[in-house]
Design a binder for these strands. Structure first.
Lengths: 180, 180
DNA sequence: GGGACCATGTAAATAGTTACATGATTAA
DNA sequence: TTAATCATGTAACTATTTACATGGTCCC
C-alpha cells in the first residue's frame, strides 16, 4: 500500500484531482514509479473514509471535478511512513533475463534488443538533464528542489551506468556475430 | 507471464525440481528478478499441460521429488520469447519516493535510510565481484559464462552508480542537519 | 528428540493492469 | 464536426505474495 503515500506526498503541495495526480506521477516519477487510474481513484476514496483527505467537488464550468486535499491526520500518516525504513526495491529487468539466456539466440537479435535499450536510456538521460537545468533556473516555492535534484541525480547516474554497460555489451555481440 | 520463460531458461541446463528452480532464481537472479513458490509450482503444472515440459516423478529415497525437463516445444517457445523485444522494465524504488518528499522529515532520518541503502548495495557489490572472480576461474560447461558475466557487469556498474549517489546525498543531509 | 533444511503444494489476500463506459470541453 | 484531451470511475482479469499445511531426511 505505497500508492496512498505517493498521493499524500503530492497533496502536500496543494489540492488536486485524481486525474492531475496521475499526470504528476507520470511526469515526475516515470522512471522509478507508476500508478494507474484503477489504483488512484479507489485509493483516494479509501483515504476519504479514513479521514486522511478531504473532498471538494466543484461543478464550476459544468465539468465534474473532484479535488482532494490532505488533512492533518493524513499528513501525520505520511510523516510516519516517510520515517519507516524503505522496504521495496523492486527491479524486474527483462533485458537481463534475455542477456542471461542469450546463448540460445543469435547475436543480431541481442544487438537489436540492446540498441532499443540504449535509445530508451539515452532519451531518459536527456530528459533528466533538461529537468535538472530547468530546476536550477526556476524558483523553488515548496523548498524541495534539492530533493527533486537528488532524485534526478540518481536517474542521471544510473542511466550513465546502464549506457556504459550497454555499449560494451553491444560491442561484444558484434564481435561474436562476425566470428560465428 | 514471464515466470515460465525464466523457468524454461533454467531447464535448458537440465531437469530440475520446482524447489531447486526457486533456489537457482534466488541465487542467480536475486538482484533483478524474483519468483515465489506460489508462482513456480502452478506454472510448471500449466506448462506440463501445454507440453512445454515433461515430468519425472522419482520416489527414490522415499522423498517425493518431481523433476521437470524442457521439451522441444518448450524450447521453441523459449527461443521465440527471447527474440521478442523486452517490454518490462519495472523499477519501484521506495527510497526515491522518500528522498523526493524528504522535506517533511528530518535529515537524520534520511541519513539512516541512506546508510541502510548503502550497506545493502555494498554487500550486493561484494557478492557480485566474488561471483565474477569465480566465474573467470571455473569451467564453462554450458558456454554461457560470457552472458552471465555481462549480467554481473550490469549489477556491478549500477551498484557503483547507486553508491556514488548515496555517498553524495548522505553528505548533503549531514550538512543540512548541522545547519538546522 | 529437535532443529535445519528438503520438498510439494494451495488458499486467500493483496496488488496492479487493462479495457471499457460515460460525458464535457477545446481547438483544428 | 471531429479528434484530442479533460475527467471520473468500475469490472474483470492477471499477477504476486504470504501464510499455511504436510511430511521426509539429515545430523547433532
Amino acid at each position: 500500500m505505497k500508492t496512498r503515500y505517493v498521493l499524500l506526498g503530492l497533496l502536500t503541495e496543494g489540492p488536486q484531482t485524481g486525474y492531475i495526480l496521475k499526470k504528476l506521477i507520470d511526469l515526475r516519477f516515470k522512471y522509478f514509479w507508476n500508478e494507474s487510474y484503477g489504483q488512484i481513484y479507489p485509493e483516494l476514496k479509501k483515504m476519504l473514509l479514513e479521514g486522511w483527505v478531504d473532498k471538494h467537488s466543484s461543478d464550476q464550468a459544468k465539468r465534474t471535478q473532484i479535488s482532494y486535499s490532505i488533512t492533518e491526520k493524513g499528513y501525520e500518516a505520511l510523516k510516519i511512513w516517510l520515517q519507516k525504513p524503505p522496504e521495496t526495491e523492486l527491479y524486474r529487468l527483462e533485458i537481463l533475463i534475455k542477456v542471461y539466456f542469450s546463448s540460445h539466440v543469435d547475436a543480431d537479435c541481442m544487438i537489436q534488443h540492446l540498441t532499443t535499450f540504449q535509445k530508451n536510456h539515452r532519451d531518459e538521460l536527456d530528459i533528466l538533464e533538461k529537468f535538472q537545468e530547468e530546476l536550477l533556473r526556476i524558483e523553488d516555492p515548496f523548498e524541495n528542489h534539492e530533493d527533486v535534484l537528488s532524485v534526478i541525480d540518481f536517474g542521471i547516474k544510473s542511466n550513465h551506468a546502464y549506457l556504459a554497460w550497454c555499449q560494451k555489451l553491444i560491442e561484444r555481440y558484434r564481435k561474436e556475430g562476425t566470428v560465428k
